[in-house]
Structure formats: structure tokens, C-alpha cells
């Protein structure tokens, strides 16, 4: 089975992205594949590389990065959601004259069309709303 996941919740704000992470892990462990993770709305906060939670807490942004790298999962951050919320890659930071960027490796910024593409090319799309 090929899954796509749409994730709307920010880490540390709602359980949505944590649930999505656990679903993704279980799907991969069960021999399924993931066509795409699409981070939309507050979900884009999962893609920051600057999160520094306390040592004894789950570092969800890092866990996503490791999962994405280990399984080479296509992971897209909605560009409109991201720019509004200050999640930005080097290229966009330059375009908008920002003095820093914070998008973690493994994530791509792209348009909402990628959510639809994710829906079209998977067997099942699961939404994790906040």
C-alpha cells in the first residue's frame, strides 16, 4: 500500500504531527511505502532545523528528519504556509531579503499542487488535523 500523509499540526502545540510520525513509522515497519509527506498550515513548523527542545523531551523535528533521510521520503512543506510562518529555505530567504533561513535538510518547499499530486499518486491519503 502506498500512503500519503497530510500534516496540519505544529509540534509541541497539538498531537497531530506526533500521531502522523507514529503512523508513518508503523506504515514503513509494515512494509508499506510513503509517496509523500505534505506539511500544511501549522504543520510546516515540523520542518525547522532550529528547534531546541529540552534534552529529556521528544525532538520531533529531528525525528522527522531522521525518518525522512533513512527512508528517502519525499517531504514537501507548503510554500505559502511556510513563508507566512517564517519557515524559509536559503533561496526564498534571499528572495525576500531575510537575514537567515531555517528549513531543515530533507524538506522541500513547493506549492499546494503537491498535496493534490500526493493524493492522486497514492493508494490512501491520511490527514492529521490539529
Amino acid at each position: 500500500m502506498i500512503f500519503s500523509l497530510a500534516i496540519y499540526g505544529a509540534p509541541y502545540s497539538s498531537q497531530a504531527s506526533d500521531s502522523a510520525y507514529r503512523f508513518a513509522t508503523a506504515a514503513l515497519a509494515g512494509g508499506h511505502s510513503i509517496y509523500r509527506l505534505f506539511f500544511y498550515a501549522d504543520g510546516v513548523h515540523n520542518a525547522t532545523r532550529l528547534a531546541a527542545p529540552p534534552q529529556d523531551e521528544n525532538n520531533l523535528p529531528r525525528a522527522w528528519r531522521q525518518l525522512i533521510e533513512a527512508h528517502a521520503i519525499d517531504s514537501v512543506v507548503c510554500i505559502a504556509s511556510a513563508l507566512r510562518r517564517g519557515i524559509i529555505n536559503g533561496e526564498e530567504a534571499e528572495r525576500y531579503g531575510c537575514d537567515a533561513d531555517n528549513l531543515a535538510g530533507g524538506f522541500e518547499v513547493s506549492g499546494l499542487g503537491q498535496l493534490l499530486d500526493a493524493a492522486v499518486r497514492c493508494d490512501r491519503l491520511i490527514t492529521f488535523g490539529d
Binding site: 500500500m1 503512523f23 508503523a26 509494515g30
Partner: peptide, 8 residues
């Protein structure tokens, strides 16, 4: 969660 995946 494995059951969740199966149900999906």
C-alpha cells in the same frame, strides 16, 4: 498504530 495502518 500497526492496526491503524491496516485499517487505513
Amino acid at each position: 498504530y500497526a492496526d491503524f495502518v491496516r485499517l487505513a
